[in-house]
Amino acid sequence: MKISTSVNNSIIEKVGADKLFSMMNEAGLDAIDFGLLEGYKKPLEIMSGPEEEFVAYYTNLREIANRNGVEIGQTHAYFPSEYKDEEEFNWLIEQFERNIHATALLGSKYIVIHPANYRPDEYGNDRINEKTYRLFKALIPILEKYDVYNAVENMWMSRDGVIMETGISNADEMLKCIEKVGSDRFVTCLDSGHMLNVGRNLGDEARKLGKTLKIVHLHDNRWMRDSHEIPLFGETDWVDLMRALKEIGYEGNFNVEGSSAKFYNIGGEEMLYEFFKLVAKASKICISLV
């Protein structure tokens, strides 16, 4: 199983792709979960720039990754995915088309586009999910065009700081989403920390996802906050989760969706490298559990 972690464009701009990918390789990482955004509600400028420039940029990044011995195993699209009118819906589709195209240029088959995420007490789960299904159905031709799969991720929502389930927060809803969208371009991405936050048993949820589970966002949490800690730092039962992944024949990467940006902000490249080393070591420990 390859070991991977998430980084996004903002880190690349600060450190430089060559140096960043080389650091990751040296720390013991094999793959990257590439964030195609600046941050929450912050799209990358290049996603709305000239196509020629966009293609050259991501083609070059793929070459740099290859040169440094790391693969782009999966990507993460812009978020949030909520929309209130047609104008916002169309903007999202345009943004996601570029994100999906970038995924293909980076040599990856999988992208995570978040489901729409609203407060369930205000909207009702059915209405929330209809918004997601509509958005995802509109993406089918784009995913087919670029030969990319969208992995449906389990989410959470909070009200006054209390975390709760929302539209798609568990395996049943993830599988229902795939069925409703009705395309083989949709698979699943288990987010371990989110599942822990909403009080689900991670092993059981992974077993339900079975062969639909192609990629993962693995991270640890304590109960009350989605803090995206390094595996083993929180309350997750890693033995059971790893056992479940083995049982279902999971063939994807051990991808840690941690806090590379946090560590970079703490102490620049030195602390970023510390983070990569901890992620690589923790991942190896988890993989060796079963």
């Binding site: 083993l232 730092f233 929180g234 309350e235 890693w238 033995v239 703490i266 102490g267 030195e270 602390m271 510390e274 080393k277 901890l278 070591k281 923790a282 420990i285 988890c286 559990l289």
Partner: peptide, 20 residues
Amino acid sequence: RIKRTDREFMFDVASTNCKL
């Protein structure tokens, strides 16, 4: 919390903590 799964990993984390 770390020790529950791997006690030696405590020293990797302590090393990062030392730098912090």
